[in-house]
């Protein structure tokens, strides 16, 4: 992962791989095990999970892009501080925009938007990639990682909302007359809405992914 010297087309295979890698075999959550904390917190329902995913994609993309633009000017000794300032500023911007134009969802996400600042994926990608690469590949890498993160969030949220509340996007999916209260046989699994279940689901996803892709299994 060093800087490319020669001129490349905008969507070369290398660039495309930067984008697709983090979605599958370099997934920040299931392979690098970064950003676990917020994936536990906001996945009880689909809608906040999706808005969270979009917010993280915006922040990872732009922070990688901006840091990559600045990479030759940043004094090495305050490198981390500069990264944090850029990330924090972007997160506050996202939060302000959500409050102005997506007020309902921003209320549901509450503190977790602010906590994107501490999402390890963002710092991780800046340190590992954006500091040594040109702006365009860095942007692609950041967005790709954001999508990889968001995808897991959405999958986990889907199962947690479906099994925990019987709904998807707030719409009732499990038929009402299945419920014990209405004379049926079914009951929502209360454990699903508790954070530990998110961890177990992430574990299951990691298991499934590794059983399909044997390269990922550590010796």
């Amino acid at each position: 992962m060093t800087g490319q010297k020669e001129k490349e087309p905008l969507f070369s295979t290398k660039i495309l791989r930067l984008f697709t890698d983090p979605i599958s075999k370099g997934n920040p959550i299931t392979v690098l095990v970064l950003g676990i904390c917020s994936s536990l917190a906001v996945t009880a329902k689909m809608e906040p999970a999706i808005v969270m995913a979009i917010s993280v994609i915006v922040v990872t993309g732009f922070s990688s892009f901006i840091i990559s633009l600045l990479r030759n000017t940043i004094p090495n000794r305050i490198r981390i501080i500069v990264q944090l300032v850029v990330i924090a500023a972007l997160v506050i911007l996202v939060d302000q925009v959500l409050r102005a134009y997506a007020y309902d969802v921003s209320k549901q996400l509450s503190v977790f938007v602010g906590l994107i600042i501490t999402n390890c994926i963002i710092m991780g990608r800046i340190e590992a990639f954006a500091l040594g690469n040109k702006p365009w590949p860095s942007l692609v890498d950041g967005v790709g990682n954001g999508i990889g993160y968001g995808l897991i969030l959405i999958v986990v949220a889907f199962f947690r909302e479906l099994l925990g509340s019987g709904t998807v996007f707030g719409h009732q999916v499990i038929p009402e007359n299945w419920y014990i209260a209405n004379g049926g046989f079914y009951e929502n699994n209360g454990l699903m809405i508790l954070p530990p279940m998110a961890l177990i689901l992430v574990g299951v996803i990691i298991w499934i992914q590794r059983s399909f892709n044997k390269q990922l299994i550590e010796k």
Partner: peptide
């Protein structure tokens, strides 16, 4: 280092204030 940090903070702070 000092100038860089000061400049960065001023730029970021103005952007956030405007937003």
């Amino acid at each position: 280092t000092f100038l860089y940090a000061a400049g960065l903070v001023v730029v970021v702070a103005s952007a956030l204030a405007i937003a």
